[in-house]
Design a protein around this nucleic acid. Structure first.
Length: 266
DNA sequence: GCGACAG
DNA sequence: ATCTTGTCGC
């Protein structure tokens, strides 16, 4: 009924694979649209985004008492209108348990399948960028789910985290306490953000205030083929609520199917 | 040993 | 991730 925990041997193999895939990882803009970020902005100015028409989102939702199955969802939305162009979801079997730092080994396979299906069935709707529910470079080895998916699908991706993943490295300390304190002090309005920078100077991602009306930040990081400032600009332009629409709609789609198909107990 | 731990 | 409606506030 439940999955075996990943042992140390497996974790070492997974680390090696992350390092290997990282050789193909690109953290700079390599997209077919343009993001003009105002260098003098205070972190709240709207960037000019030209040529972006389709943004996608992916997510998985889970059953209460079943580790092994989930519902994966993919949506493609128009930009900047956020109108639904494509929706797909499917119940999937998972082969590994959740382990912080190794989310991709659990969730990437079914998401890649949905992307493959889209490419075959509706190639004209292939997205220009994909927003992923999970981190990109905001990760202990700078290679979270969003990076992993981006490299394997050869697609620009952005990592969107709703909770902060602490980074504890020899050189870099990014703690919940520090981030919360900085967020309180410097995120006064929607659109403002600050870089999550380790003591070594490495930038892992950004804490972003989506809207005036939301206090808690989201955590945006580079997935693949996009620079952090561009990733933040795109994510912000997708926000109707705290969580950017592509991810939020994929979440709602998969969650609705879970609720509909779970056994009506009692 | 202790605490932390995306989804 | 998931259990959950209404409710308080801008």
């Amino acid at each position: 009924m439940s999955l075996e925990p990943a042992d140390d041997t497996l974790l070492e193999a997974w680390k090696s694979e992350q390092l290997c895939l990282k050789a193909r990882h690109i953290e700079q803009d390599q997209v077919d649209f343009s993001v003009l970020v105002d260098a003098t902005a205070d972190g709240a100015a709207q960037a000019d985004i030209c040529g972006l028409e389709r943004v996608a989102g992916v997510d998985l939702s889970f059953y209460e008492d079943d580790d092994r199955h989930a519902v994966a969802a993919l949506v493609v939305l128009s930009f900047p209108d956020m109108a639904v162009l494509y929706q797909d979801f499917t119940r999937v079997e998972l082969h590994h348990p959740y382990k912080a730092g190794f989310l991709a080994f659990r969730e990437a396979p079914p998401l890649l399948s949905l992307l493959q299906k889209l490419k075959i069935q509706a190639p004209e709707l292939w997205p220009q960028i994909l927003l992923v529910d999970g981190n990109g470079t905001l990760h202990p080895r700078r290679f979270g789910l969003a990076c992993h998916l981006g490299v394997l699908a050869d697609l620009p991706t952005i990592g969107i985290g709703k909770n902060f993943l602490q980074i504890r490295d020899e050189g870099d300390q990014l703690t919940m306490e520090t981030v919360k304190r900085t967020a309180r002090a410097s995120l006064q309005r929607g659109g403002q953000w600050f870089a999550l920078t380790g003591s070594s100077g490495a930038v892992y991602g950004a804490a972003v205030r989506s809207l005036d009306s939301t206090q808690n930040p989201i955590f945006v990081s580079t997935g693949h083929r996009i620079a952090l400032a561009s990733a933040v600009a795109v994510a912000l332009r997708c926000c109707r609520y705290r969580v950017p629409e592509p991810v939020r709609q994929a979440d709602q789609l998969s969650r609705a199917y879970i609720r509909q198909t779970r056994v009506a107990a009692k």
